[in-house]
């Protein structure tokens, strides 16, 4: 399964997905979100939707000095929080800014492709994709 942006032009910028992602932890707010919605240079021009693309050879894991980010079979990474020293190199390595940061814990927040956010997008911007093998698929 892979989180994907189906149609970015339908995004209204409500950020319900961001709040949903953070709410997985059970609390409110935005500290734990790993999906990002921002305007594309002013709201009238529409929005940029940032989701982790689950790269098959993830640059974020490649720069992690402690091996805290472990590449997963089929793409994406898993965070071993105990190994993470909060250096932020992974954040800089992701060219689409899909590594988010929990300021309170000083650790990255990594998308686990759970698709919880998809259920809170009222405008069908997001989808959880599945290919024939049930593994990965190219996203926008």
């Amino acid at each position: 399964m892979k989180l994907s942006v189906k149609d970015v032009m339908r995004c209204v910028g409500c950020q319900s997905c961001m709040f949903a992602c953070s709410r997985r932890s059970g609390n409110a707010g935005l500290s734990n979100t790993c999906i990002g919605i921002k305007s594309t240079g002013g709201i009238s021009r529409g929005f940029t939707v940032i989701v982790c693309r689950s790269c098959e050879n993830p640059p974020c894991a490649a720069v992690c000095p402690t091996g805290a980010l472990v590449p997963k079979e089929g793409g994406g990474v898993r965070l071993n929080s105990a190994k993470c020293i909060g250096c932020g190199l992974c954040k800089d390595a992701c060219v689409i800014d899909a590594i988010f940061w929990n300021e309170e814990q000083n650790k990255p927040v990594i998308c686990v492709q759970c698709g919880y956010c998809v259920d809170y997008c009222p405008y069908e911007v997001l989808e959880l994709k599945k290919d024939k093998k049930g593994v990965t698929h190219d996203a926008e």
């Binding site: 953070s22 059970g26 609390n27 409110a28 935005l30 500290s31 734990n32 979100t33 300021e103 309170e104």
Partner: peptide, 8 residues
């Protein structure tokens, strides 16, 4: 701006 957690 900010992005903190709110406990319930």
């Amino acid at each position: 701006s900010g992005k903190q957690m709110i406990e319930v």
